[in-house]
Design a binder for these strands. Structure first.
Lengths: 224, 224
DNA sequence: CCACGACGTTACTGGTCAGTAACATAGTGT
DNA sequence: ACACTATGTTACTGACCAGTAACGTCGTGG
């Protein structure tokens, strides 16, 4: 029995491997800096198979960004589902996610934003994906703050959004000081805008949710 | 008289033309996306002359970034000199500069940050220039807010810095909403931290400095 | 007038890259 | 055994790109 032993039996299908390799290389070295040969090799396959699954490098880039967008959306949804009907806990969990992202030593900024910088052609399909994703993220923050009863949820969301974006870009090109202090900023900013009645209740709750959410966030997401 | 008429007599020397062309093309299309041939052609010269002035593309990139850094520093200094011993007016002028940068329709983010995204190799000479510049900018903000008597100038500077960075990156990949509202954010943030005694005095002064500084900022800087 | 230096022109090298063609191989279902 | 499909392999094209060599031109300063 077993004359047809699958070499590395549990290896995922080529398409997945290619996408995973592209994701890693694109994020680490940049989209333009990575050739399709390198991706195929990293995926333990070859260029032909790559081109059978993705018609062109641009298509692969789009698939890469769409995967990132989906994971970012899923992560957000999971965050929401973990604390149903408790927007304050959701906010706190998100802040902790932000902290985790920014203190990850492999952090090289937001893959989406970096892609937007690299793909400057305004008609590149990638841009639409990025634009949609970022707009969605901002709107999700607005909604969350609105549900939490914050005054001026749009303003708070814009500010939080820009602070996070700023942190992720500046962690790539500065001495990282400001970026690493962004969590403290977020906390005090949110405290300032939280509905007054809940302040002390929220403070009490943080001690709890801090442990709960801290352990289960193991997904290595690179998104907002 | 005048048998040797200089064709296009007032044309600047090749080195300047090359740097100007590089600056334009690098900023508009990205550093990696622009070849030296294209730069030479845009500078109305040729590749050989380019390589006589800049030993390599990397050297040209460094010169490009250093020029940007110098202009950014000069602009900051001019801002300071325009309102000597009046840090509040300097702050207001800087905010107006920010507004002008962000509403410029040719804005494609901070050239420095974009370069950092494109040049991922940690040992690339460009990275040091960018890092130094950004750190300097942040420190200049700290100093300015400190001179203006703000409480916690470091915190305010970090927040302002990250908001601006966030605005400049997000203007490239989002529906630009949040970025365009950053000036309002800055104003209210600064108002919150300004020394209490000066608030109404500052408000009165804004009406004046708004006209003064608004007209003379014609330099097309792309820097923080 | 001459020599020198700055600049221009052409053509080339070697390398990389996206994308394709042609053929070989292996698993799978019938 | 057969056919079909997914995958692997090799080799290629054409384009682009960074960088160089060799030579030609022109203006300036002595």
């Amino acid at each position: 029995m077993g004359q047809t032993i699958k070499t590395a039996a549990v290896q995922p299908p080529p398409r997945e491997r290619i996408l995973a390799a592209a994701r890693d290389l694109f994020y680490r070295h940049g989209i333009r800096a990575v050739g399709v040969d390198a991706i195929a090799e990293a995926a333990a396959t070859n260029k032909m198979t790559l081109y059978r699954h993705f018609g062109s490098k641009d298509e692969l880039i789009s698939a890469y960004l769409q995967e990132l967008a989906k994971e970012g959306d899923d992560l957000w949804q999971r965050l929401r589902d973990t604390y149903p009907d408790d927007p304050h806990a959701q906010i706190e969990a998100w802040v902790q996610h932000v902290e985790q992202v920014l203190t990850d030593c492999s952090e090289r900024g937001c893959a989406m934003a970096n892609a937007a910088v690299e793909m400057r052609e305004i008609d590149h399909p990638a841009r639409q994906i990025i634009d949609d994703y970022k707009t969605r993220k901002r709107d999700q923050l607005v909604r969350l703050f609105s549900e939490a009863g914050y005054g001026e949820p749009e303003q708070v969301a814009d500010e939080v959004f820009l602070l996070f974006e700023g942190a992720r870009i500046s962690i790539q090109c500065c001495s990282k000081g400001p970026a690493l202090r962004v969590v403290r900023m977020l906390r005090s900013l949110l405290a300032d805008h939280a509905p007054k009645v809940e302040v002390e209740a929220l403070a009490a709750k943080n001690a709890v949710s801090e442990r709960e959410a801290g352990t289960k966030s193991s997904a290595k997401s690179k998104e907002t």
